[in-house]
Simulated scan of single mutants.
Amino acid sequence: MAVVKAASSFSGMYTKFKPHLLMFLAQIGYTFLYFITEASFNHGMNPHVYVTYRQFVSAIVMFPFAYFLERKIRPKLTFALFMEISLLSFLGVSSTLNMYFASLKYTSPTFVASMVNTVAALTFVIAVVLRLETLDLRHARGMAKVIGTVMSLAGVTTMTLYKGPILKNLWHPLIHLQRTTAIHEHWLKGSILTVGSCITWSLWYIMQAITLKRYPAQLSLTAWMSFLGGVQSAIFTVIVQHKQAAWTIGFNIDFWSTIYGGVVISGLIIFVQLWCTEEKGPVFVTMFNPFTTILVAGIAYFVLGEKLYLGSVIGAVIVIVGLYMLLWGKEADQEVNSETEEHSCSPCDEEKGPKTNNSGGKRSAGAIEMPCR
């Protein structure tokens, strides 16, 4: 009996925290992506070609799973829905990724990785404006969501603008990565591209929640976004990249970074994010983005021997505290909403049960039952 209760308790905990676990694993996947793509770009691969190939790899891998596993639940793809998915692909794939990787040429990976964390705050603001996210400042849960968002922005700002003293390395780096020392810095252009990618990324998360209501097939939606995003990125790359040699990759780091980005990131992790968006909403998904910056900084410092500044540590702590506050606010909102739904339906449940009349007999078959609203 005790074993059954323990198993039931564990199952309940797993169900409750499954989205949290999946999103944390997704951030680990993004962390490895940072290092493998950096090595590939240093090797000479064009970022726009990388995005194009990565999306086509994802489409090829995800198509059979989407076709066979979602045959019964996949809605009919109308022209209006196809155009909506095309816009979703444009926002989240071709626009965001191409601007993101292009900005790396003009700024620095640390700057871009830090700025991407503003996606959570931008998504929260847009979701509130579009009334996809509830915000009740009369209760502690509403204040926690606002304060958590502001703290996350403050933490990102601290990591970006304040360096502080360099923390001393405790040991020699375990791995040495070859990096190009010549960086063509153009901070204004790079900052504009980074901000643009953050805005389209936020809109993409918001639109995911809207599209999933009309097309609740995450595998199929992932496959369609990968394919359409690849086509859009290919058209853009052909316009800006005229050298045919840029499209040729060998069986080296360029190949493996493309496979990893296509299968793990654009395939598996995007599917996980779509599932979590449907379960918890777009703000929940974006609030885990700061973990990527923290994990990247930790691996770069402890494993690769890169410089770590005090400002990065302080900012990371602020981001984690803000993340906890916002997630607490969202969990409290969901509990309140669940209790409200239960109370609203409880009178109906009582009406549906076998009631007795004043004489002690059961309710007659012709009695009218009130529908649960």
Rank of each mutant, 00 (worst) to 15 (best):
R131V: 00
G190M: 00
A154E: 04
L33N: 07
T286I: 09
V116D: 01
S89D: 09
G353L: 10
S86D: 01
M151Y: 02
Q232E: 15
S89G: 08
T356H: 15
F68M: 08
E306L: 08
H48N: 12
T123P: 08
V119M: 04
V150M: 07
I126L: 14
L130N: 05
K280L: 11
G329C: 07
T237C: 13
A332C: 09
K76W: 07
H186F: 05
V4F: 10
E342Y: 09
I270S: 03
P19C: 09
Q273A: 02
I249W: 00
R74Q: 13
H172S: 14
G229W: 12
A66H: 01
A234T: 14
G92C: 04
L212G: 03
K362H: 11
I147K: 08
N117M: 06
I320M: 09
T258H: 04
K280S: 04
S94A: 15
R141S: 08
W171M: 06
L87G: 05
G360P: 09
I183E: 13
I175W: 13
E278M: 08
K16H: 10
P47C: 09
L137G: 04
N357Y: 11
W247K: 06
V128P: 00
S220I: 08
N46L: 03
I60P: 00
L122C: 12
M99G: 03
M1D: 12
M23D: 00
G44H: 04
T277V: 13
Y67D: 05
R373A: 11
V112A: 07
Q334C: 09
F251L: 14
K76Y: 09
K307Q: 15
S338H: 14
S338C: 11
K189Y: 06
I183A: 14
G366D: 08
N289C: 07
M370R: 10
I249D: 00
K330A: 04
H172K: 15
V264L: 14
K213R: 14
T194G: 03
I147N: 02
